[in-house]
Simulated scan of single mutants.
Amino acid sequence: MGTIKAIVFDAFGTLFKFTRGSSARTIMKHITDLGIEVDEKAFLEEWKPFYTNHTVEVDTFMTEREIFSARNQMLYERYNVDRDARADADELLSEASKRVSFPDVPIALEEIRKHYKVFIGSNTDDDVLGCVMKKNHVSVDKIYTSENLKCYKPDTRFYKKILEDNDLLPEEFLFVGDTGKDDVIGPKSVGMKTAFVDRDGTGADYGQNYTISSLEELLTLK
């Protein structure tokens, strides 16, 4: 991979499995279990924008725990539900802490670390990522989260802070992830090289330098 010296991995969807929409469905079930009717499609469509509105181009930083709590509270008030919004946010993050790695991750990371500095760059709270890494016996050289950087991908500050923390040129980084905006467009905007992890073979093109279906392919890129 030429001048690449450090590889930054997104965490969830790249190193660790997760089911999109699972958190929204958990909260929706808390509401419907009380016999309250909910339009599932509308509920799910509203869930993600609330997160985006509190993470993209915002002046005041909030952790994921704080965002989940605020979102739960908003929904419980709307449906007149008497539940502890913060406790339910903790429940969501506790479930997130149980995520497992993709089968190719342990062996591939071990080999990759022999050749490159390996970092994680993830939109998540520190304790959640720490639990997942410990559970899956994953180690890297440095960990960058939205919580410790006080901003979220694809905010350019996220990637710039990684650059500032390392004595490397932007083109000496390879950012690896499974989403277009966060893991390709964002890091490319600061000069990093990118690899899109396309495990499902979608053929999506976000302008990435490489497309891979497993992490093992990183060891053969030219």
Rank of each mutant, 00 (worst) to 15 (best):
A11Y: 07
A89N: 02
F61R: 06
F43E: 00
Y76G: 03
R65H: 12
D84G: 10
I107M: 07
D200C: 01
F119Q: 06
A6D: 13
C151G: 13
Y144V: 10
F173G: 00
V128E: 14
K150A: 13
K181A: 12
K134R: 08
K142Q: 13
K222D: 09
L149T: 13
W47K: 00
D167L: 03
G201I: 12
M74Y: 13
T14W: 13
N123A: 02
S214E: 14
T156V: 13
T179V: 08
T55A: 10
L218S: 02
S22A: 06
K41R: 13
L44S: 09
S139W: 14
G21Y: 00
T124H: 13
D104I: 03
N72V: 06
L109S: 08
E37A: 06
L44V: 10
H30M: 05
P49G: 00
R199K: 11
L168G: 01
F50A: 07
E164Q: 11
F68L: 14
K48M: 00
V184I: 15
K142I: 04
I143S: 05
A24C: 07
N166H: 15
E40M: 01
N166P: 07
D88K: 06
P187T: 03
D33E: 14
T211Q: 14
V8D: 07
I7D: 14
Y51E: 15
M133I: 05
G177N: 07
G203M: 08
F158S: 04
I212A: 05
D141R: 04
Y206Q: 01
L218G: 01
A85P: 13
E46Y: 10
K98Q: 15
N123C: 01
E64I: 10
T55S: 15
F175H: 10
L221A: 02
V184F: 07
F158P: 08
V197Q: 14
V100W: 08
E57L: 03
Y116F: 15
M28K: 13
F61Y: 15
L218P: 08
D167Q: 13
E147T: 00
L93R: 09
E66I: 02
D10A: 04
A85H: 10
A42V: 13
E216F: 03
T179S: 13
I162T: 06
E216K: 10
V138Q: 07
D10N: 10
K114W: 06
F102R: 04
